[in-house]
Structure formats: C-alpha cells, structure tokens
C-alpha cells in the first residue's frame, strides 16, 4: 500500500542542480519520482518502470517523437509521452505523472493521487 498522499508541494533540489535533458530521482514522501529538465520545461513522473518493474526511469533518455516530448525506459527502451504519461510503444501502459514547478529557484513536486 502506498502511504497516505497529501497534496503539499515538496522541494526537491535547486533548478541548476538539474542538467538539461537529464533526469534525477527524488524521494517525495517516500515515493520515488523522476524529475527532468528539458528545453520545454520540467517534467516529473514515477521512477518505477511500469514494464520492467525497476526504479530506473530517471536514468532514461529524453527526446521527442513527432513533436511530443518523450522519455525512453533505460531497461527495454519503451518510449513514453511526457505530457500524458502514455506509452507510445505498448498500448495500455502508462507512466504516472506528477505536477512539478520551479519556485524561487527550487524545483518542487506534488504527488498526484492514485487515479
């Protein structure tokens, strides 16, 4: 069971700690979240690879497919749409996204409740 989810924003790290187009993993109320900084902005998704079952999504490569910003799993390369979390290679697979913002130079994440 996941812990009770509150809707507070959790500071993760200074913005300049994020390398462009590279992810980091963060612990947000005991949930592993992968945070990315791309030219389009910030993205936060579950660090858990929904296909491979390991906590590795922060180590995937970001890019684009048909104009949509994407993230590829480092395990078996399934590509996800960062704007919706939908897997573009496997129907029915989704990566949970989390709200993320930058406040006063700090990157903050708010866990999305179970859908």
């Amino acid at each position: 069971m996941r812990p009770v989810v509150t809707l507070d924003w959790t500071p993760v790290c200074p913005l300049d700690r994020l390398d462009p187009d590279r992810g980091v993993a963060a612990l947000v109320q005991d949930v592993q979240v992968a945070v990315f900084r791309t030219t389009d902005g910030l993205y936060a998704v579950d660090n858990l690879d929904p296909v491979g079952g390991a906590y590795v999504m922060s180590r995937g490569l970001v890019g684009s497919r048909g104009g949509v910003p994407t993230l590829a799993s480092p395990l078996h390369k399934q590509v996800y749409d960062l704007t919706t979390g939908r897997c573009l290679d496997l129907p029915g697979v989704t990566l949970r996204r989390h709200p993320v913002r930058c406040r006063d130079g700090l990157v903050e994440v708010r866990l999305r409740q179970e859908e």
Partner: peptide, 10 residues
C-alpha cells in the same frame, strides 16, 4: 530536427 531521441543521441 526536433530534440533527438534514445536512438540518435547515443
């Protein structure tokens, strides 16, 4: 074009 992907970047 675009921002690359897990094929062209590596």
């Amino acid at each position: 074009r675009g921002s690359g992907c897990d094929i062209c970047k590596p």
